[in-house]
Design a protein around this nucleic acid. Structure first.
Lengths: 352, 352
DNA sequence: ATTGATTTCGTGTGCGTACACAAATCTAAA
DNA sequence: TTTAGATTTGTGTACGCACACGAAATCAAT
């Protein structure tokens, strides 16, 4: 590999001059600049990123803002782990990642933490834009400071985000319908569970549902969808009762589709009855959900590789900040099918 | 991040001494060594890999040996791409990868290329050990020179390989059976296509088949398996004829299971008839296979993430060579289900 | 030609580590 | 105590690049 010094020698100038040309620092005469550029191209010169990051000796700061997780709702753990993993990798290039979290059900928490993030004065930002209106406001500030930002998981339209990383929710709904149909064949009912708290803040859920129903109707499948709204996910007793009533009222329900990550909750309260065998299909390979697969209470889970989403967000932002490499506008995560037979070897959250 | 100099200062010794301790170069008194080690641990010191590779200014060489690919048989393209991708990443750490390929049907080609690899004098080796006997011979030479080696894709037993990276073939066969059963329900026949050229050199194929049949019998599923041996995969006309005969003789065949990566071939010749609708399930997301999913001639493909296998092999070997980090003995690839609805967003081979 | 202002360029230092070599300290025998 | 020899420790340079500083060259105007 040629070095800056090699090029300088060949051009009969000093390394400093080559450096100036490379970085468009100016102060180089047209003639020598031209000569140097030619030699750079001729030798296919590539900057040594290692030496570069050593010499720079300053950090680029990426800040992230994603929902917090807890034992009740651990979905957001995976993206966080992905971010951490990427964080370690890019550290050698002089990139530092600072993480902020918020309560995904409280817009005020989102705003507060977003402001904390702004105070950290980052060079690039990765966010889960849970609240549309507030995001509009806050990204204005980012743009004023010309700080690039990437959306992950939620695909808001009408923003100048560098990229969106997440799943095609509609397509995943179609896939769920296909699997449901395979399990049930025609002529029965399927229950679609909506959770009110989610439906308004995260329209990915509704896209999943429309994908599901569209697939059935487009393929003229004789499965009727019955929707139910569940108010409080945290009250297990009420939940059980609510589900019991719906199932009794609709004896032809053979399958349940839960378009969010909390299917384990429903599996539990359905399991307690056992009057008929139901086929359950849901989302996301959280630990409790995986447990349901193992116990045969859930047939399929659709995963969106949340780990990878976090991981990629950091890697892409790094490439952009260091090499000015523009990512694709939309980066869709694979729609992964999890079932009893392939969960053991599924990609784990570490060491990807 | 603490540097060697920081540690040296704190221990009241020179950087050179810390360096000696870090690399077990010897020539350090017990007392100071102890002191330095404690401080290293206390500060959770991690060597700066960037500075290291700059200072080393010499390359670690990894050599790979995998089957060549062509338009007929492009399966091995994916691992190769994975290797290339990893190659670029580890280059900044001063690791150079040299690739060798062989004709997977000729042991002589394997041996010849293996020797070429040995001549390159690598520090670490990644191989697809297609031929057991020859591998036994050649790894002896590797061990004599204490060169570590990793197997990918084929899991030979009784070797001192650092690690195996690949799929649990048996489990994937079980998954294929489950999907087949979902598609067909009970009481029909399934055709299992064996290709003679593969069956002896690659026993992953037979593990897939036993996984398939075991699942059916364990779950008392009324599906009968009919096996057929196909002699020449490259003669399309003969193939079509052979398949036609088997299907005519067994009118109850409703599904076809192809336990290798060439299902597109069968889909083509089956498609030409169209007397009855067959459910096809096969392996690996090669371009022709993906095309079959799109055209609805194949229902499911099971993928083993071959790209990732190649990628990981290089990354793991690098970690071992640089940091002496021992990988797991077996690293199983995820068993991925591909179907029409999720192929668009599946993980592509680039930029992982 | 001289001065001063500008433009253009070269030099030097530091980033964190590896390693060769020099220096200091210690050990044991004369 | 001296001294050779071994052991232990310190110092200096290089790796390729970024960037500050200042030197040299060029140019404009007197």
């Amino acid at each position: 590999m040629k070095t800056i010094k090699d090029i300088a020698e060949e051009a009969q100038v000093s390394p400093g001059t080559v450096d100036r040309v490379l970085h468009n620092r100016g102060g180089v005469s047209k003639k020598t600049e031209e000569k140097v550029r030619q030699l750079l191209k001729k030798n296919n010169f590539k900057i040594n990123r290692v030496a570069r990051s050593l010499a720079m000796n300053k950090y680029l700061k990426i800040a992230t803002l994603i929902p917090e997780y807890n034992t009740e709702n651990i979905f957001w753990r995976a993206p966080r782990l992905g971010i951490q993993s990427a964080q370690e990798e890019v550290a050698v290039f002089g990139v530092k990642v600072t993480n902020f979290t918020f309560d995904q059900f409280r817009a005020s928490s989102y705003v507060k933490q977003f402001n904390a993030l702004l105070n950290a004065n980052p060079d690039g930002v990765v966010i889960v834009p849970t609240f549309q209106k507030e995001t509009k406001q806050l990204t204005i500030e980012l743009e004023k400071r010309t700080i690039p930002y990437i959306f992950i998981n939620i695909d808001l339209e009408g923003f100048n985000n560098l990229s969106f990383i997440g799943q095609d929710a509609y397509l995943s709904g179609r896939l769920a319908a296909k699997l449901m149909h395979l399990c049930l064949k025609d002529a029965c009912d399927v229950l679609i569970v909506q959770t009110r708290s989610n439906i308004d803040i995260n329209h990915a859920i509704s896209k999943r549902i429309s994908g599901f129903t569209d697939y059935l109707s487009e393929n003229k499948i004789q499965i009727k969808c019955i929707k139910v709204d569940v108010s409080n996910l945290d009250d297990s007793k009420a939940l059980t009762e609510e589900i019991r009533m719906v199932l009794n009222k609709n004896p032809n329900i053979k399958g349940v589709f839960v378009p969010n990550s909390r299917i384990a909750l429903f599996a539990d309260c359905i399991e307690k009855r056992k009057t008929r065998k139901l086929t359950l299909i849901g989302y996301d390979g959280t630990d409790p959900n995986i447990q349901c697969l193992k116990e045969d209470t859930v047939e399929f889970l659709i995963s969106q590789k949340p780990f990878k989403q976090g991981y990629n967000s950091i890697k892409l932002m790094t490439d952009f900040l260091i090499d000015k490499k523009h990512p694709e506008a939309k980066i869709y995560s694979p729609i992964e099918i999890l079932t009893k037979e392939n969960i053991l070897q599924r990609e784990v959250n570490s060491n990807e």
